[in-house]
Design a protein around this nucleic acid. Structure first.
Lengths: 199, 199
DNA sequence: TTTGCTTTTGAACAATTGTTCATTAACCAC
DNA sequence: GTGGTTAATGAACAATTGTTCAAAAGCAAA
């Protein structure tokens, strides 16, 4: 046999990426064989190499795609006041991450399986994301709105807290996403010392 | 050749666990071969099976050992008031985790490489740890000290925030551990709505 | 219908995997 | 020293790994 009826790169290509995403998230990059990905697509292993030069690039492309969209879609916050910008960041982060659990999981679980060069590229994108949050925090502190000390630490702490949601949140579960967003926004606002006045 | 001069199970045993710990943390369970562990110890692969029935058990024992010590050493907080108990928890968590980066890393990165049975056991230990924090939060809310809504979410958020420290903290770096603890305690206390009064 | 392009197969490759076990040497109490 | 116990070797195993490639078959425009 050779080419199969109905085969098209426009169809197979996305299916290869989808299968890799699903399996990498499920079992981990190192534990997923190219044959397993091929089986998920319904194809032989050799066919995958029409869509990626190698397994490493397949992982890298998934991670880079995720980070690119994350950075492109995140709120810009131009001219917004710091508290509003922070709220927008928190809301965006939770909503974006809740909608893409597999991408998120891979993006921070499989960092060590990247080659040195690829790791550096993803790390740069990640840092850029963190920096944008830190800028909001610096602006808020400068305006006397946030009572925080080290903006770098606070930025990392907030992101860790928010990203942790993905370990337990499931759409259709006990809490709606809006409820989750409301509670996390409460905590973040309080954590930066911008909680409600009455006590 | 056979038994080597100076070989003793009291020495080799701990070295096997130490090598596995180091390599699993560095490269991931699936990416580390038994031969790589053996090479780190300075022994042939076959010798490892004097110390573990198989690779899976080696991973499980490391994780279980970590969780057992974590639960044994964590503050009990008997009769302590909630704010003090929370502070003790935060301090303990940060100090314990900062001192054992490899164990911590493995304990939450390699969960998916456990067999179903082993996963359930580790998960139970983890939940027990989370529950102890949640009890503190419930007591604080009942006493009117904490202004929080869902104690389960707050517990998970706090743990995620604290555990995230391990991704960047290095002893001897820009910040001392005490400074880190102080800043995280500030954030946690504020997050639960028990911040300082003056505003 | 022919032609050229696209897409997949399936076999082959060298390397590596976890694990077993007969064999052998070092250790240690007597 | 002797003998039993302990601890390692090193070869062997079947299975699986990522990747390559000639061959073949479907597709689409002429």
């Amino acid at each position: 046999m050779a080419r199969t009826t109905g085969s098209h790169s426009d169809i197979t290509g996305p299916r290869v990426r989808a299968a890799a995403l699903k399996l990498f998230a499920q079992d981990g990059y190192a534990a997923v064989s190219m044959r397993a990905i091929a089986a998920e697509v319904g194809v032989q292993a050799g066919a995958l190499y029409n869509y990626t030069p190698d397994k490493q690039t397949l992982l890298f492309d998934l991670m880079q795609g995720h980070m690119d969209v994350l950075l492109a879609q995140m709120p810009q916050g131009d001219g917004q006041e710091p508290l509003e910008a922070l709220k927008a960041f928190v809301t965006f982060h939770l909503q974006y991450h809740a909608g893409r659990p597999d991408e998120v999981f891979i993006a921070y679980m499989e960092l060590r399986n990247l080659s040195d060069e690829n790791f550096a590229r993803i790390e740069a994108l990640r840092r850029s994301y963190e920096d944008r949050l830190e800028h909001i925090l610096q602006a808020g502190r400068a305006a006397g709105l946030f009572r925080i000390h080290d903006t770098k630490i606070v930025a990392l702490a907030i992101i860790a807290m928010l990203t942790g949601v993905n370990t337990w949140f499931r759409a259709g579960g006990r809490l709606s996403l809006d409820e989750v967003v409301a509670q996390y926004w409460d905590m973040v606002r309080n954590a930066v010392g911008a909680g409600e006045l009455p006590r």
